[in-house]
Design a protein around this nucleic acid. Sequence first.
DNA 1: TTTTATTGATTGATCAGTCAATCAAAAATA
DNA 2: TATTTTTGATTGACTGATCAATCAATAAAA
Lengths: 195, 195
Amino acid sequence: MPKVGMEPVRRKALVDAAMRVIGDHGSLTVTMSEIAKQAGVSPALAHHYFGSKEQLLIETVRVHLQRLRDSVVTALRAAKTPREKLSAVIRVSFQADQFAPETIAAWLAFYAEAQRSEETRRFLVIYARRLHSNLVANLKALCPAGDAGRIAEGAAAMIDGLYIRQGLRSAPISTEASIALTEDYLTTHLNALRG
Amino acid sequence: MPKVGMEPVRRKALVDAAMRVIGDHGSLTVTMSEIAKQAGVSPALAHHYFGSKEQLLIETVRVHLQRLRDSVVTALRAAKTPREKLSAVIRVSFQADQFAPETIAAWLAFYAEAQRSEETRRFLVIYARRLHSNLVANLKALCPAGDAGRIAEGAAAMIDGLYIRQGLRSAPISTEASIALTEDYLTTHLNALRG
DNA sequence: TTTTATTGATTGATCAGTCAATCAAAAATA
DNA sequence: TATTTTTGATTGACTGATCAATCAATAAAA
């Protein structure tokens, strides 16, 4: 079996396995053994490629945020007007795979981890900033700059809040309802500025 | 030294110590030793009174949510009109001790834990429902019932979202600004219904 | 004397991380 | 082409540390 060029294959498998195991487990206190098993390799190999558990977890955050970013870029390209681009950003935040319970559980675990791991925090901050700046950039075409910043803050908070509340499964809300609430927030506040 | 009636004293000390240690550590992966040390007793005593680490953590959530509830009740009593009561609920959510970094870190850890521990989840769901129903009850006096539910969802999401984003410390926002954003959300949406 | 409070010492389990050894492909050499 | 050497991939077995949980013992009140 040992062929050359396995490294990228194994790294991807391990990063995907980590996300799945963390999501199922609902916590970062998962063992390297579980992750390796899920990826179909030995724990020793996971250490071989990532050096440490912490490094594997950090890579997992990085890779998955990168994928999320790619989704946003694609969605933004497809949208024409600023208003459509705002909707695109919202839609991606709530898209199916992001809204799956295991995915929410995993992100929640990473958010908590950001309190301990400076590197994890850095990646999440980059995501938060990008979300904010995507919103601001397009809002500026629709309202004064000062209002754009404020409305973007509110919209970002609402997106994250709907997300975390979905994780609690107290009053499960559909993807469409979440999108509608956020859209409504934007529309109402933009209208308030005109009227 | 052993005097009778130590139990409630020790329980409170341990629950407070747990919250502090978890907040400082930014995670639930804290040891019974650390908690016990912070409380000034031996690890064995913590086990004696709580049976297990999990039970101590659950008690910690319960007690702290109970305190939060008491704050809300007091604030609601002090407020007269429905609109003032809405403001009171918002104010408590962002009050100083709740907004301290260690407190946010602790709650984030518990939110993540809710994915694993059914009992922890139950307590957080109760809090979420109470927040929602406090908002709905007072909104109903100011707008149609259907709109009240929707606006309450949005306001609750915004509160939780501002909270979690504060935990990231990416663009630290002041207590006042957080309150202002949430108040603005309510005002704007209530006005939109009238206009 | 019984009960409550308290701890030091210990145990058993879990895990991250290491290491030496194996195996097969690729590259170099004859 | 055949043979040897090197290198990358992979793992089983092991180690050391950590930690929750237990327990027997002590000490002071009731």
